[in-house]
Write a protein that binds this DNA or RNA. Structure first.
Ligand SMILES: NC(=O)c1ccc[n+]([C@@H]2O[C@H](COP(=O)([O-])OP(=O)(O)OC[C@H]3O[C@@H](n4cnc5c(N)ncnc54)[C@H](O)[C@@H]3O)[C@@H](O)[C@H]2O)c1
Ligand SMILES: NC(=O)c1ccc[n+]([C@@H]2O[C@H](COP(=O)([O-])OP(=O)(O)OC[C@H]3O[C@@H](n4cnc5c(N)ncnc54)[C@H](O)[C@@H]3O)[C@@H](O)[C@H]2O)c1
Lengths: 214, 214
DNA sequence: TGATAATTGTTTTTTGTTTCACAAATAAAT
DNA sequence: ATTTATTTGTGAAACAAAAAACAATTATCA
């Protein structure tokens, strides 16, 4: 990708812009201004314009942005034409919810393989996706060329499972366990710590008076 | 609360420190240094020392921090002695996972009331928690003095449900729907956008070479 | 066509956060 | 005791992001 390394904060907002633009297109809107976008996605209009400007002059002064062409542009940026397969490790409560949801419908991502130790699940198809024995994970991930994993095993298994994922050559892990796993530099970990989100929300409510957190 | 308004970035890390300190205490460790903490929670040691220093001089030079007293201190800061009841709105895939998990075991938070429109669920007890009709939500939330809600309804219902929550006087919403809901200033919304997390992770892997995101 | 309104793109300013680097304090070792 | 090792707490520097402000451009309408 030739993009001149956009700020991380901007990168995190891109899928949100993309999603809302898709909604606008479906709703038949042809143009949109940074102010309208701001109302919908709750980022400052100046922030939105700045974000877009990293990719060049996408809008038209006095007019706004053309929904369709902006959407096309973001589709390319976000590689929306290629479907990314991800592995789900640990098909318990949370794993089932995520699998059942399967991102696919609304995005370019889908869970294409599941791994677990539970013999009752192994070699079954769940929500259309095959469940494999964790013992076969390294081989399967390599054979299927999967680069991203969603980790929903018990905390006690988190580091050992991560080590296997690293061995399999995974590049990114969406980690739902509360353990901050250790990985080599080249592997990227995105932690989703739900207990922390909730506790932080409570702390903010009790100790701050002003608005939003994200 | 008397705390002199700690930086937001610090506040978000507090529950993570607390959790790890609890682990250390259980493991029988009596002292810990910022470097050891750094290895475990993956924040820079200087960041950790700076974070702690907002609350005063909690450590001892040449020694580190006393696990037990630091833990006690954070327990107070985070109000760990009082149990916070939260409402869960929408008992579908994700709602079930969260309810079943119920934060309680590891934290001072628990889901104490569930709301849904599904007649098969209404007036049943699920994972020990009563499920109420969404029609009774405003009254129930007020009667039970619940201030925090977890929102796991379909996106199409998100804004209408939020409006009800606001009417009920809720103070904070942990929003799992992809919609960026609109609320009055006084209400705090914490968005957990799982599709976005995954897409961002993929974007980072494809476009950046360096490490971590959080 | 010219005036007015809208809206971008970008420069500047402000705010917030992380990291460095080191003096001060303490512990441990000799 | 004195020296050597650690390790904190923090001022200052560096970095990153958000917001404000506004000139430039374009659309629209009289
Ligand atoms: N459920 C939630 O709402 C929730 C909320 C916050 C955090 N989490 C975290 O997410 C993780 C999963 O939570 P859950 O509630 O789904 O747990 P769970 O116990 O319901 O599911 C865990 C699954 O992992 C499988 N498993 C166990 N060891 C394994 C191994 N070595 N390899 C592969 N699979 C293995 C089990 O068979 C089970 O299917 C936990 O770390 C939990 O702390 C969950
Ligand atoms: N399941 C996931 O893994 C996942 C992942 C990302 C985002 N989400 C988001 O989380 C939300 C919930 O997802 P889900 O998979 O659990 O959906 P779901 O359809 O399984 O569950 C939705 C629940 O909400 C109830 N409901 C519907 N309308 C309601 C109303 N007006 N008031 C109260 N309850 C109502 C339904 O009866 C159902 O029980 C959705 O917005 C979804 O986009 C889910």
């Amino acid at each position: 990708m030739a993009e001149p390394s956009i700020p991380r904060a901007t990168a995190k907002r891109l899928p949100i812009y993309y999603r809302y633009l898709k909604f606008l297109l479906d709703a038949g809107k042809t143009r949109v201004s940074s102010t309208e976008l701001s109302d919908a996605v709750k980022f400052d209009a100046a922030t939105i314009r700045r974000d877009f400007s990293y990719f060049g002059a996408l809008g038209k002064r006095g007019y706004g942005y053309d929904v369709e062409s902006l959407l096309d542009f973001f589709a390319k940026i976000l590689n929306q034409d290629t479907l990314t397969n991800v592995a789900l490790i640990g098909l318990g409560n949370l794993g089932h919810a995520l699998l059942n949801f399967n991102f696919h419908k609304n995005s370019n991502v889908r869970v294409s393989a599941v791994f677990d130790i539970n013999q009752e699940l192994i070699n079954t198809i769940q929500s259309g996706v095959p469940v494999y024995d964790i013992k076969d994970m390294v081989n399967q991930i390599q054979d299927q060329r999967i680069e991203i994993a969603i980790l929903t095993v018990p905390q006690s298994e988190a580091q050992a499972t991560t080590d296997l994922l690293v061995k399999a050559g995974i590049k990114g892990i969406l980690n739902f366990t509360p353990l901050r796993v250790t990985v080599p530099e080249k592997v990227r970990v995105q932690n989703v710590d739900l207990t922390n989100e909730l506790q932080t929300l409570i702390y903010f409510i009790e100790n701050y008076s002003e608005q939003s957190i994200n």
